[in-house]
Design a protein around this nucleic acid. Sequence first.
DNA 1: CGGTCTCCATACGGTTGCGTATGGAGACAA
DNA 2: TTGTCTCCATACGCAACCGTATGGAGACCG
Lengths: 182, 182
Amino acid sequence: MNERAAGAEWIDAGLRALREDGLEAVRVERLAKALGKTKGSFYWHFADRPALLTALAEAWRARATGAVIDEVEAGGGDAADKLRRLFAITLAADGRLERAMRDWAARDAGVAAIVAAVDARRHGYVADRLVEAGVAPATAQWRSRFLYLAIIGRFAAAPAPMSAEEARAMIAAIAPLLGGER
Amino acid sequence: MNERAAGAEWIDAGLRALREDGLEAVRVERLAKALGKTKGSFYWHFADRPALLTALAEAWRARATGAVIDEVEAGGGDAADKLRRLFAITLAADGRLERAMRDWAARDAGVAAIVAAVDARRHGYVADRLVEAGVAPATAQWRSRFLYLAIIGRFAAAPAPMSAEEARAMIAAIAPLLGGER
DNA sequence: CGGTCTCCATACGGTTGCGTATGGAGACAA
DNA sequence: TTGTCTCCATACGCAACCGTATGGAGACCG
């Protein structure tokens, strides 16, 4: 069996539980039941529950860091186009895992560091696009932080993700911040 | 003893635990220890743990609904002034309880309804100020939602609250959205 | 002074979840 | 066939909580 994928299914199940029911739902016996196995299997792959949690945080970092940015960049266009596409994607995305990660980060310094690193990367991307769109760097620094906060807010908000049309309407309403025309 | 304040100290302790360590930290024996009492006392005031949780959600609704809005209104000025003051207050506020409530709401329909009601009230306030500042109602509806999402995002973000100067810089950077030239 | 009402402590049973110990089944090699 | 390595099942002890039962101390009432 692949060493790299040793506990892969446990990590997948853990991320699923984390997304759907929060950190407190990430329990070894529950995951075992979901996988049709028992604790004996879990403790063969992981030393203990904290070891799984560390792996979960790391797995989130790996897939959360660049995925959306890559998708935005793949679409091409100028900086304002990219920002609009970034919001179209994030406003309509499922933010449950993001919310769970941030709630977790509030009570775990290690996870907080991971989330902070991911945030820095994504915030930097927005800031760079704003500068590219002609916004003064000093303004762009703070404006991008605000824009990114709104994305986090969308993830943290309980209501369901927005539809594509709703996202378009919201993006139009904040056009003065995105550079481009105007 | 005051009937209204029957279990008041338990609710205070519960809100404190909720703010600092999340819903999972709201345990009756832990609260009892924090209050220097025992479970026997708790179960005299509350039927069970869910009863306390319901009371906590209600207590949050009561104090979260209008507090900030009242403070903003008390300062006077025009609509744009009020919006700037709203952000100055919320960006620098401690959002831990707000974050805990939203994470809780994600897994409890009753709490979700309470949070949604509070959100509607606060979002409506922002929308009304935007219209008052001269923004077209259709635009104001979406723009206010975006602005409110950023506030939620600030609450959900792990890092510490912003300083007053940082808040000022951020508000200046999003001035184009707040109406009232300047 | 006896009665009662409020608030709380103590003790108990039951459940859940963690981590460990131990063994077994299958693959694969010697 | 025998040994070994991987992966998993079963069984156990332990700790944390929940909720209940019961009694006791103090106030206040008659």
